[in-house]
């Protein structure tokens, strides 16, 4: 999928992705010549198809987590299906979670919670953030393309 600014005959570049939380996805592309922006709006079916492929519109800056699609999409998984092993990949520095962020994390099913927690923690560390708040989680979801997390 690519977008062409027909007037300028230039390929438009991905700029931003937004996840309204209703199963849809919005992505903005901009012409590097005239600056015109267009929005790609996908319905829940189209969003699901992209997610099913395990790819992210706009790309991602983080490595895939083990069983990322299975853990993110299966709704009938056992709460105790996964136990976190040792080691944090040498990333070291811990981040804290605000009360509100902890409450939000607690609403994530156990089956996928460990992965979600790690993704947000890595995101915060990479950006030098000491605390994870709901606002940080929202930004990470959009930036990283974490549809549905």
């Amino acid at each position: 999928m690519k977008f062409l600014c027909v007037d300028c005959d230039r390929q438009m570049l991905f700029e931003e992705r937004q996840l309204p939380g209703d199963g849809t996805l919005a992505a903005a592309f901009r012409c590097p010549q005239c600056g015109r922006a267009v929005g790609l709006l996908t319905n829940p079916m189209e969003t699901q198809l992209v997610a099913s492929l395990g790819v992210k519109i706009g790309g991602t800056t983080i490595d895939p987590q083990p069983l990322e699609t299975v853990r993110g999409m299966v709704t009938t998984g056992r709460d105790e299906a996964f136990a976190e092993g040792t080691g944090d990949g040498g990333r070291g520095t811990s981040v804290t979670w605000s009360v509100e962020a902890q409450e939000r994390l607690a609403r994530v099913p156990n089956f996928v919670r460990g992965m979600v927690k790690k993704i947000y923690a890595d995101y915060a560390r990479d950006r030098g953030l000491a605390e994870i708040t709901p606002a940080v989680m929202d930004t990470a979801r959009s930036e990283l393309g974490l549809e549905g997390m």
């Binding site: 829940p44 699609t69 299975v70 999409m73 299966v74």
Partner: peptide, 23 residues
């Protein structure tokens, strides 16, 4: 069971199962 729109789930379910196989 997979999270996703219920309507026309046959369109995306096999793709998700292929993703599970890949993982």
């Amino acid at each position: 069971g997979f999270r996703g729109p219920e309507a026309e789930s046959h369109v995306w379910r096999e793709t998700l199962e292929a993703a599970a196989l890949r993982e």
